[in-house]
């Protein structure tokens, strides 16, 4: 076989391998990020949740944990283009991440079963019956900052 044909063979094979199979991104989720201020201070701990608002569109929900006033959602788990309702909750930071020292598994389980009465620091207009709304656009940057006021006690 003449060597120039061989060279082309090898090159074209390499080309096929290098291109591989292009990945289609599917529904086109956008990365989302932003900040949350409660009474002017960064919210220490809480959760943000995006629920679809419009019908008839392909809208995935998403959300994130808020830490030190910021949140961010990577593109793979982000939101598709459209309108979303935003719920921000900030339970009082008494939730245990494990047992109190010296607690038996039985007592800890009982505590876990009855837990959930953690007081919410934000009024319902920010979470259960939220009035916050965002519009996710394909061009970005999709940074949404929120200023919320806690329940006055």
């Amino acid at each position: 076989m003449p060597s120039h044909i061989l060279r082309w063979l090898v090159l074209s094979l390499l080309g096929v391998v290098a291109t591989g199979c292009g990945g289609a991104e599917g529904v086109g989720r956008q990365p989302i990020s932003g900040t949350v201020l409660m009474d002017g201070q960064p919210l220490d701990k809480g959760a943000i949740n995006f629920q679809p608002y419009e019908g008839g569109k392909h809208l995935v929900g998403s959300g994130a944990v808020i830490q030190n006033g910021t949140y961010s959602i990577p593109g793979a788990q982000g939101l598709t283009v459209g309108k979303y309702m935003v719920a921000i909750s900030a339970p009082e930071t008494s939730a245990q991440s494990g047992p109190v020292s010296g607690q038996s598994p039985e007592d800890a389980m009982k505590a876990a079963a009855t837990a959930g009465a953690a007081k919410e620091r934000l009024p319902k207009k920010y979470n259960a019956t939220t009035e916050l709304m965002v519009d996710v656009t394909p061009s970005g940057p999709n940074k949404f900052d929120f200023k919320v006021d806690s329940i006055k006690r």
Binding site: A47, S62, A64, S89, A111
Partner: peptide, 24 residues
């Protein structure tokens, strides 16, 4: 989802492992 699970206790927030969690 990147949105967290909610638990009153034994909640270990691990967003990088795909297991986010908050109290509640």
């Amino acid at each position: 989802s990147a949105s967290p699970d909610v638990m009153g206790n034994f909640c270990n927030n691990q967003p990088s492992m795909g297991m986010p969690c908050v109290g509640g």
